[in-house]
């Protein structure tokens, strides 16, 4: 049976891994290649690298990092952050990334999803969606969660799936950094309306949160950053306990 995936996420800034709370207050979390190797040794199922730096040199720094990561690890990884064209996507894919994640660029130009999935295949197109509840409606936010839009999370997710995305990475900004669990209600709704895998993101604090998102949130994968980077939860322990709770997991 297909297993649920545990995905550590590394936010990258200037070639270093960083982690903040609610998208703010960045702290240094170490060398991304070294961190990546540690996660592989702990049986992480996949990794995501999100480049949150914005500079002219960005693409070059990022492609160098992708190459180093690809040489060092033998599990799949996704790269995102500022990918806004076929050229950007190609640059990371040809250097060894398995998937690209697009976010704001997809909202601004939804055809990018179609183009990328036709050109590289659905399997390597992850659409990341940051959303926040405003007046009891989930609204999509752009540019790392800074800019609110009027776009509804569920409608956008449907369009994303119809346009050929292989996977959705949904981050609840209300939950991100709070360590109070994932947005399981919204996640379960997403799984009921679209038929591509959903990665839950934002809110991981304890092991039970992962169990809950796999059972109540129907998530296919769960992403977390700080609880892994700062050693609060070890992936090996997490997987052992999930297995004890009869969740299908790769050991």
């Amino acid at each position: 049976m297909l297993t649920k995936r545990i995905i550590p996420c590394l936010d990258i800034k200037g070639g270093r891994a960083v982690k903040g709370v609610n998208f703010l207050n960045l702290r240094d979390a170490g060398d991304p290649v070294k961190l990546a190797k540690q996660y592989v040794a702990q049986n992480a199922d996949e990794l995501i690298f999100l480049d949150i730096s914005a500079s002219e040199l960005k693409r070059k720094t990022l492609t160098n990092l992708v190459l180093k990561v690809a040489a060092a690890i033998d599990i799949p990884f996704t790269v995102g952050g500022g990918i806004s064209s076929v050229e950007d996507a190609f640059a990371v894919l040809k250097n060894g990334a398995d998937k690209v994640s697009i976010n704001s660029a997809a909202v601004k130009n939804p055809r990018l999803i179609t183009t990328l999935s036709k050109k590289f295949g659905s399997q390597c197109v992850v659409v990341a969606i940051d959303a926040k509840k405003l007046n009891s409606k989930w609204k999509v936010h752009l540019v790392g969660g800074k800019i609110p839009t009027e776009i509804d999370l569920f409608e956008w997710s449907k369009e994303v799936a119809d346009r050929g995305a292989g996977e959705i990475l949904f981050t609840s900004m209300d939950h991100d950094g709070t360590k109070k669990g994932f947005a399981n209600k919204a996640l379960a709704k997403l799984s009921s309306i679209i038929n591509i895998p959903i990665i839950a993101s934002g809110g991981a604090g304890k092991i039970q949160d992962f169990t809950d998102t796999f059972i109540c949130g129907k998530s296919d994968a769960a992403l977390a950053a700080s609880v892994f980077h700062f050693g609060e939860i070890s992936i090996l322990d997490l997987k052992k306990q999930l297995k004890n709770q009869h969740i299908n997991i790769r050991m």
């Binding site: 049976m1 297909l2 297993t3 199922d45 038929n195 591509i196 895998p197 296919d220």
Partner: peptide, 13 residues
Amino acid sequence: SDKAKVPQMGWNN
């Protein structure tokens, strides 16, 4: 078939 999510993505035995 669409009974399961497509693509299958992840680790299977």
